[in-house]
Design a protein around this nucleic acid. Sequence first.
DNA 1: GTATTATTAGAGTATATACTCTAGGCAGTC
DNA 2: GACTGCCTAGAGTATATACTCTAATAATAC
Lengths: 222, 222
Amino acid sequence: MKTRDKILLASLELFNERGERNVTTNHIAAHLAISPGNLYYHFRNKSDIIYEIFLEYEKLVDYYLDIPRDRPLTLEDLTFYLESVFDGLWSYRFFHRDLEYLLDSDPRLRKDYREFTNRCLAAISQIFEKMSEAGIIEPQPEDLRSAMSLNVWLVITNWMAFLKTAHAADEPASLSLTELKQGIYQVLTLEIPYLTPGYREQVMALREKYRPSLPEPTGTGV
Amino acid sequence: MKTRDKILLASLELFNERGERNVTTNHIAAHLAISPGNLYYHFRNKSDIIYEIFLEYEKLVDYYLDIPRDRPLTLEDLTFYLESVFDGLWSYRFFHRDLEYLLDSDPRLRKDYREFTNRCLAAISQIFEKMSEAGIIEPQPEDLRSAMSLNVWLVITNWMAFLKTAHAADEPASLSLTELKQGIYQVLTLEIPYLTPGYREQVMALREKYRPSLPEPTGTGV
DNA sequence: GTATTATTAGAGTATATACTCTAGGCAGTC
DNA sequence: GACTGCCTAGAGTATATACTCTAATAATAC
């Protein structure tokens, strides 16, 4: 593997583990046992590394959220979208953690991320539309659909942050992909009232699969 | 005003404006035209300052979310809760921005914040319960109510972060309290399907007041 | 007034961080 | 073997950051 790619991979790994704020370029170089000079030969600065990682993330999600135009949506599609999006979120989980700071320090990233958000919102909205065409949910006015899409987006992108704050610091391996996917339970909660009688039970069963195991997802602990 | 209080106030102001990460103790001291030594006479470290600000925030929200036990809830109550919570969010907006980092660097804060979250979730849940008692929304099973409360919490606490990312960097005074309160529109969106026929119109009218003025709240801009 | 305590200034420090610069190695090519 | 272009090492730097230390000043108590 090329040094350049190794740097991207190691950065992503360290960022995810410790948070971008706690990972310096020197850490990354040390982790790879290469010199800082070497790292800076491949990337102009830290922002550039982050930007390239974002491009990967963007590509991945765009790929997942490619909605078929030629056929109606199925429940399997819905499951796939949800699972995929949370997988992506997990793989690039450092990103949403320090989002504001990252966007403030890189105008390119800010612009791209804004467009990315808009694409995601449009995709979510489209999924709703096709779900109603498929008779899974009741049709909704445009208005409501876009407000709901936004709520879905808010829940998805912030579920992880919530989980982290809900955890006690000393809990080992304090966040797992399984836990993260309980976010799907939360997203499906948003859709419950709109389900058609024909699909209600199936979706509720799907939702049940992601129900948090603890009585309270926040884990009062004390 | 005592120096100690001035430090807290200036810190909050600077944190809100520039983000905690971009504000050093030296900045705070300089802003107040006092010496770093003076600042450290009053606070052991930066974490202590943040912790005390959190205590204020906590106190404020706890005060707002004190649910009356002796009488049913009205729509005015609901409006008050929503307005107040977003006011609080606005006044201490730096806090949710760097939340994860802050919690990671101060175990005290982590513990307190977790309990705070649980109290808020309980309050939201209670509001739902009392709203159904008052006949504003249909009664819901405990299960659904707590999942919905969590969604409300996610939307509320992350609405601001979303707004900031949706903004272009160069927009002047890039975030206003008015805009922030469009979050109320999003929260009320969550409740629409559960409204009773008797209250539906009133709540929808209330929601309408907070509707974003732009066609798309994300402001494609380009 | 004097003693005591609370506050303040301001220079200073250890450490970290992002990033630079120079010198050189290594692979291929003629 | 020498030239070229890509890659790498590693020492080094300017700046920032959180925080300390000492001495002086104001406030208060008696």
